[in-house]
Amino acid sequence: MLRFALSRLLSLGLSLLAASVVIFAAIEVIPGDPAAYMLGMNATPEAVAALRDELGLGGAALTRYLDWVSGMLRGDFGLSYTYRVPVADLVAQRLWVSVPLAGYALALSTLIALPVGLWAAARRGGPVDIGVMGATQLGIAVPNFWFAMLLVLVFAVKLRWFSAGGFPGWEAGVWPGFKALTLPAVALALPQAAILARVMRSALIETLGQDYIRSARAKGLSRGQAIRRHALRNALIPVLTILGLQFSFLLAGAIIIENVFFLPGLGRLIFQAITQRDLIVVESVVMLLVFAVILVTFLVDLAYAAVDPRLRRR
């Protein structure tokens, strides 16, 4: 198990290295002057030259790359061109919104999806199954921002249980922050839960057809016991894969939802940075997201090995 973890850790490091090279090359090395791009078409040559100087674009690519990487390792992501504050501070603020939001949404989606998928699989072909399949089909088809607007209309405008948007900050207390994230988390979670419930259902149905379920029944386990004791853990592997993908998506993919609810999250930061041509922020945030995705993949790999003894030896 330790060997497995170490080998996965090694590949994590290599992926990060590769990603940093690709990002750096895409933004700073590929022809086209980043400084001219950032300043737009009407910039004077003097302004461009000044910015080039500020960005340190004069040096060799390799030196600049090493500076960038070693800076990041020290927590120095540079200075945002538009906000004029360290990118690290900017990102840290946003992470305080995005990570709890993604975690909240993921927890909701898991809590909804796993029991629903289990329920549908156990009653395959029955009315419950048909109802669940129909509902999840709808959940996948309807875009999450539409859900979001619906939620705002019902729970904020009509019932006035939640505010329609904005984030008070965690300084205002855990509960107000939590409350502000609830509607966005639900809007994000529902489509994800629909996907996850379907994956859970089909994985369970496949597992239930396996010979070892028949063996378990021959030992005297009831259908429910066979599902709980044997099918569930075997069905978890595809579910974990989807969960990992969903977390990565939720971290940065919440742009639209963050806009609907006026949340100062990572998605909005990168969106604004791109429209304002703030390449320094873009570069750092993309790198951070890559790191998050790779880290999640690593954790999913560890979870696979925890579930399935066959993977531990590799």
Partner: peptide, 22 residues
Amino acid sequence: CDMRGRQIGMIFQEPMTALNPV
């Protein structure tokens, strides 16, 4: 369920898949 396993045991053809792998 009480009879199976206690009074009647059964083994099947395909031993490679008859056991829970995890």
